[in-house]
Amino acid sequence: MQPLVELENVSKSFTLHLRGGLRLPVVSGASLVAHPGECVVLGGPSGAGKSSLLRMIHGNYRCDAGRILVRDGAEPVDIATAEPRRILALRRGVMGHVSQFLRVIPRIGALEVVAAAGREAGLEAGAARDQAAALLARLNLPERLWHLPPATFSGGEQQRVNIARGFIAHRPVLLLDEPTASLDARNRTVVVELIAAKQAAGAAVIGIFHDQDVREAVATRVVDVTRFAAQAA
């Protein structure tokens, strides 16, 4: 089976021009693959570059060297060199990303925030709304909050809106950056079920999970990122 995501010898460092050009290495020579149905968990201590690696796959961070191939249908696209428009198209149709933080526009209610993400991924308006409602219900977000802008929500409530946004559409690649960080046990279980459902539907999931129990529940494979740790130049 062809991998959906394939990293080959990927390296990244930050150059801080405001600090006299200080170079901060992040990862070096990182390689990994994720096949359909897999959940690859990135392991290693905090600061090992797990989150940066996820962001590089998403195109949020640049890649200095190596290739990051994401399969769009039959075509592998190298995120490291792709045009911005190509990356945006991949984000719409191929790869979803759930971060720890919800960044939304004021004034828009939670349900609409989630439904909009569905429409953006190609769902028809009615279906997007229905699925948004179903997801928020499943994540136990009280219905009285659905029409309020999430900016005023608690961390856990915001995170559930964020998860619903990431899971509403079926995209073959799902990048999860500590999606369960601020959730209680009941909602963590829901997220585990949602991930399992995506895997069963053939998605490749790459994620970072702080909680041991979640990690054990979802991981088909753990890749220790410390082995890609870059040496300071």
Binding site: F14, T15, L16, H17, L18, R55, G59, N60, Y61, R62, P84, I87, L88
Partner: peptide, 16 residues
């Protein structure tokens, strides 16, 4: 890409 330039700015001036 907007989020890439803002989250991982390369040029010294953009970082500033």
């Amino acid at each position: 890409l907007t989020d890439q330039v803002l989250d991982d700015p390369a040029a010294p001036y953009t970082q500033l």
